[in-house]
């Protein structure tokens, strides 16, 4: 690991000043991703601003029934929160399906959103990777890309975003609150991460000197009947090949409201607007679920090692909706 200057920030104001003053600085929360990547020589911060002591650890109910989640709430604490379990089950399930017990106790909400891809060629400092080293090429396209993207990818990058939590938050219409020396702004979670295009090294809409301070999840009628379904190579402690976060409100056999997001298929949590369009107002039947899944994956493009994900994603969408229809009592 390369040497760096260590700065411990006790509060938000100190933290945003420190990252503003030191170009090349990185924020350190739980460290589960950053410390590993620094050891692999993938991340090379000149300054590390430790924000693990900043008091952004509250989970507060909003007057409208939504939730405000501090950026430094540990993943395990958020998953165990009684309101999350009762009213936003998709979020609790997504958190619990990520990483391991040890890592969930360390990882923060903000860090989870900003974690880097686990693409084998990104984490290998000797491989060609346009995300890590712009213009160097992409070894994943002609290499081992089982985990690669099938939606929104480009010839320059097929990396996927690894977070489970972010997929649930995308389905829940979450909003991210961001702070810098210029003030506070709010970014819808679905707009936080960028698709690669020809600039895969630019992963989010955030500026390098911005700090995520909170995530807000609005109240929704559909969230109570919601679920996260994750398909992976092992039963536990593995990243998603495909995952589906879905919330649905069925009234008299028809879909009154539905929110779907996909994980493991794109460089960002993929909000399934096309599927939602087909479903909204339609009968909650198996045929309609399949039609919605087909519509969402219509533009998917696979490579030899990951094209299986396209049909897997369709089937996982249908299976998740079928399960929710039963749980919602509308079977």
């Amino acid at each position: 690991m390369r040497p760096f200057e260590y700065v411990s920030a006790p509060d938000v104001a100190t933290a945003v000043r420190a990252i503003s003053d030191a170009p090349g600085a990185k924020l350190l929360g739980g460290g589960t991703n950053l410390v590993d990547l620094m050891r692999q020589d993938v991340e090379r911060p000149t300054t590390v601003v430790d924000i693990s002591g900043v008091p952004l650890t509250g989970v507060d109910e909003l007057p409208d029934g939504g939730l405000r989640i501090g950026a430094l709430v540990r993943n395990s604490r958020l998953a165990a929160h009684p309101v999350v379990r009762a009213r936003f089950p998709v979020l609790a399930q997504a958190l619990l399906s990520g990483a391991s017990g040890q890592l969930r106790n360390m990882a923060t909400v903000g860090g989870n959103l900003l974690q880097r891809t686990r693409c084998l060629y990104f984490v290998d400092a000797s491989a060609a990777c346009n995300k890590r080293e712009p213009g160097s090429g992409c070894d994943a396209v002609g290499g081992f890309h089982r985990g690669g993207a099938v939606l929104g990818a480009s010839e320059h990058c097929i990396a996927t975003h690894p977070s489970d939590m972010a997929v649930a938050l995308a389905a829940l219409d979450a909003v991210v609150e961001v702070e810098s020396v210029r003030g506070t702004r709010r970014v819808p979670l679905v707009e936080l991460h960028r698709l690669p295009g020809d600039t895969p090294h630019r992963e989010t809409e955030l500026e390098p000197d911005e700090l995520i301070t909170a995530v807000e999840v609005p109240a929704s009628t559909a969230a109570a009947t919601s679920r996260y379904r994750k398909v992976r190579d092992r039963a536990s402690f593995a990243f998603a090949l495909v995952s589906v976060a879905a919330a649905i409100d069925v009234q008299d056999g028809a879909v009154a409201a539905v929110r779907i997001a996909l994980g493991g298929v794109a460089a960002k949590p993929w909000r399934a607007y096309e599927a939602e369009r087909v479903l909204t107002g339609a009968r909650a039947t198996e045929a309609v679920f399949r039609e919605a899944a087909e519509a969402e994956l219509a533009g998917a493009v696979g490579l030899p090692g990951n094209e299986f994900k396209i049909e897997l994603a369709r089937r996982t969408i249908v299976a998740t909706l079928r399960q929710l229809r039963v749980e919602g009592g509308a079977a």
């Binding site: 260590y6 460290g31 410390v35 430790d50 017990g101 890592l103 360390m106």
Partner: peptide, 21 residues
Amino acid sequence: GACTVLVDGDRIAACLALAVQ
């Protein structure tokens, strides 16, 4: 998980923890 220790009762992976934290 070989490096698991307890910090204030919570289990963590000590290999990904910077000691100064």
